[in-house]
Each structure stands twice: as structure tokens, then as C-alpha cells.
Design a protein around this nucleic acid. Structure first.
Lengths: 108, 108
DNA sequence: CAGTATCCGTCTCGATACTG
DNA sequence: CAGTATCGAGACGGATACTG
């Protein structure tokens, strides 16, 4: 489930605290920089996360709607696991970069 | 990079030990059960893993070719991280299943 | 603001056939 | 056996317009 473009990033942002839909969209745009998530995809990803019990959806208003999202305890755990992987990858970034360079240089 | 259909599985199998191309293909077919990896995709995934320094490629024969693949120290680390995630997910499988069931039941 | 509907481009995968 | 070439199918994401 983490193997798509946005899910892990959403988890990281939600690990900070609860967000409303539009604010979350803006926050994700900051982090990915090159491209913002579309409204449609954000909804899709949040639905999947909610369905699997990682994200909680709170509806507080009606008109205008106020919906906020937060991590469940299970989601917080998953975000922790995700962070572990990210930290590991960051710590090895230089080794990976070097391996790539060596591989590309060896191409005939 | 782990976010595709085969890479993480390849890592798990290679964590056992070195494999030749065709044997690895057969081993993966066992584990995925429903469908075998195509020769083309296996080569693609192995190339990417090799390029990033996670997999080592050994050529010992010429005709017929004998090529075996094994994990580098870095690859072994990554496989360990992957296993952590898998173990985590397995330990929570029941909670996730229950969350899904509750969510699907709540659909109007 | 939150969410849905629709359409379309792209990227990955799978199947097949072929080479040394 | 290991690898490449080619083609088609399908999943996913992006853009836009629309609703309550």
C-alpha cells in the first residue's frame, strides 16, 4: 500500500498532527515540490488509509463542511515504521549514489 | 523502489542465498503462486537492484551462460529492513482485516 | 470546503518470439 | 540459460468541471 506516489508522504505529514483536507493538500505540495497531489487522488488515498484503519476521519461542520484527518494508533505505528525506512535510506544515500555512479560509468 | 510488484519479493528470496537467473524465476513463482514473473521483468528488476548496489551479479560461464545473483552487504541490510516491515504487517494483519470489515460494513 | 465524475496520458507489466 | 525486442493491456495518476 505504501508503494505508490503519495501514501507514505501522507502518513509522514499526518504524523505531525491532524489536518483538514485542503490544508493537507497544501502541505503535501510543499514537500513534493515538483507537483501537487490532485484533489481526487488525495481523497482516494485517504479513503484507503481510513479503510485499513490507519487514518481517522472527523466531520465537524456541515455547511461549509469541515473534515479533518488524523492517524489512528495503528497509523502512528505504521508512520514510525515508514520513518525508519526513510532514515535508513537517507543514511545510505551516499553509498547508493556511489553505486549508481559506478554502474553507469561501467556501461559500455 | 520497493513499491512495485516484485522487488521486495526478489530481495526476500535473495536473502536466502545466491540464485541463478532461471532458478530465481522458479522460486519467485512458488512464492507469488498466482502468477510467475516474466523473464523480462525479472531482468529489469535485477538490473535496477544491481545499479543501486543492492545486488551483485556473477558471471561464471560463457556457453551456456551461468549467471548468479546475490545480495551485497547493503542489499542484506535492505532485506532486513524489508523483513521488519513484513513482520510488522503480519503481526497487525488481524487488526487491519477487522478495520476493513468495519469500514465496508459501514458503507451505505 | 470536501468530494465526485469524467476523460485521458503514461508507465509498468505480461506475453511472445528471438539471439548468442 | 540469460538476455533483448516488440507489442498490447491495464492500472494509476493528473486535469478539469461540477455538486452540496
Amino acid at each position: 500500500m505504501l508503494g505508490d506516489r503519495w501514501t507514505s508522504l501522507i502518513l509522514m505529514v499526518l504524523a505531525i498532527g491532524p489536518w483538514r483536507h485542503a490544508d493537507l493538500k497544501r502541505a503535501l505540495a510543499q514537500l513534493s515540490a515538483e507537483q501537487a497531489i490532485s484533489q481526487r487522488v488525495l481523497t482516494l488515498k485517504l479513503r484507503t488509509l481510513e479503510r485499513n484503519g490507519f487514518v481517522l476521519r472527523h466531520v465537524t461542520g456541515d455547511v461549509p463542511p469541515k473534515v479533518s484527518y488524523s492517524l489512528s494508533p495503528l497509523g502512528l505505528e505504521l508512520a514510525g515504521e515508514g520513518r525508519r525506512m526513510v532514515d535508513w535510506a537517507n543514511a545510505r544515500a551516499e553509498a547508493i549514489r556511489a553505486a549508481r555512479q559506478a554502474f553507469d560509468a561501467a556501461e559500455d
